[in-house]
Each structure stands twice: as C-alpha cells, then as structure tokens.
Amino acid sequence: MARITYVEHNGREHVVEVPNGLTVMEGARDNGIPGIEADCGGACACSTCHVYVDPEWVDRLPPKEPMEQDMLDFAWEPDPVRSRLTCQIKVTPALDGLRVQMPERQI
C-alpha cells in the first residue's frame, strides 16, 4: 500500500492509502477524489485523469509508454516533463509519498 496525496487545482489536499496493484487513477476513483474524471475507465483512451507529478517524482516513476505520451497531447495544459495519466501509474510500495497536482480544467 502507498500513501498518495492528490492536490486539487485550488490547493485542497487529499491523502489516501492506495492498495498495491491498483492505478493512481483507481485510487482516486475509489476514494472519491474530485478532479480526476477518468472517462475511459483507465483504458488510456482519454486524458481526463491527467495530473502533474511533483518534480522529485518525475524520474522515480516508470517512463511514459508511447500510448500515454500520445494521449497527453489531448490533456489540458500538459507539461512535457511533469504530466502523467494516472491510469498508467501502477501503485507499488515505492510510490509511498507520491504527490500529484490536478490541472485547472477549462469550462
């Protein structure tokens, strides 16, 4: 299990324990975290679970697969280094302490 902090664009933080084997997106969904919509249900077919990872985590996460990189082109204000899709990050004990920031969505 890993403790993950989800930070809404307004600064509100949600710290939750997410079981190993789930994705960071599933952890948000299962804990009612607002701001991570995951319209495709985790199939890497949309970008509604897009977040920015804290800089110290960029190199600690598995690298982006080409499919994730392609979907990030559709994300709201993607950052070439810090943007990730939470459906593509599997939770392991090594992710304990991960912080992700949700972008402000344009309405």
Rank of each mutant, 00 (worst) to 15 (best):
M1D: 14
A2W: 02
R3S: 13
R3G: 06
R3K: 14
I4N: 08
T5A: 06
T5E: 11
E8P: 03
E8G: 00
H9C: 13
H9S: 15
N10V: 02
G11E: 11
G11V: 02
R12D: 03
E13M: 15
E13S: 13
E13W: 01
H14I: 13
H14M: 04
V15D: 10
E17H: 09
P19F: 02
N20R: 02
G21H: 00
G21D: 02
L22I: 00
V24W: 03
E26M: 14
E26R: 14
E26Q: 15
E26Y: 01
G27V: 11
G27L: 11
D30A: 13
D30M: 09
D30G: 02
D30E: 15
D30R: 13
N31F: 07
N31I: 07
G32A: 03
I33H: 02
G35C: 08
E37A: 11
E37M: 12
A38Y: 00
D39Y: 02
G42N: 08
C44T: 15
A45K: 14
A45Q: 15
A45W: 04
S47T: 13
T48M: 11
T48A: 07
C49V: 11
H50M: 12
V51T: 06
Y52N: 08
Y52S: 00
P55M: 10
E56C: 05
W57R: 03
W57C: 09
V58C: 05
D59G: 15
R60Q: 15
P62C: 00
P63L: 00
P63T: 03
K64Q: 12
K64G: 00
E65W: 05
E65P: 03
M67W: 06
M67Q: 12
E68S: 05
E68N: 08
M71T: 11
M71H: 03
M71C: 03
L72Y: 02
A75R: 10
A75C: 08
A75D: 07
W76D: 08
E77L: 13
P78E: 10
P78I: 08
P78N: 12
P78H: 02
D79H: 15
P80M: 01
V81E: 15
V81W: 01
V81G: 00
R82F: 10
S83Y: 05
S83K: 03
R84I: 14
R84P: 12
L85A: 01
L85N: 10
Q88D: 04
K90L: 11
V91Y: 00
P93M: 01
D96F: 00
L98R: 04
L98C: 06
R99C: 09
V100Q: 11
Q101K: 06
M102I: 15
R105I: 12
Q106H: 08
I107R: 10
I107N: 11
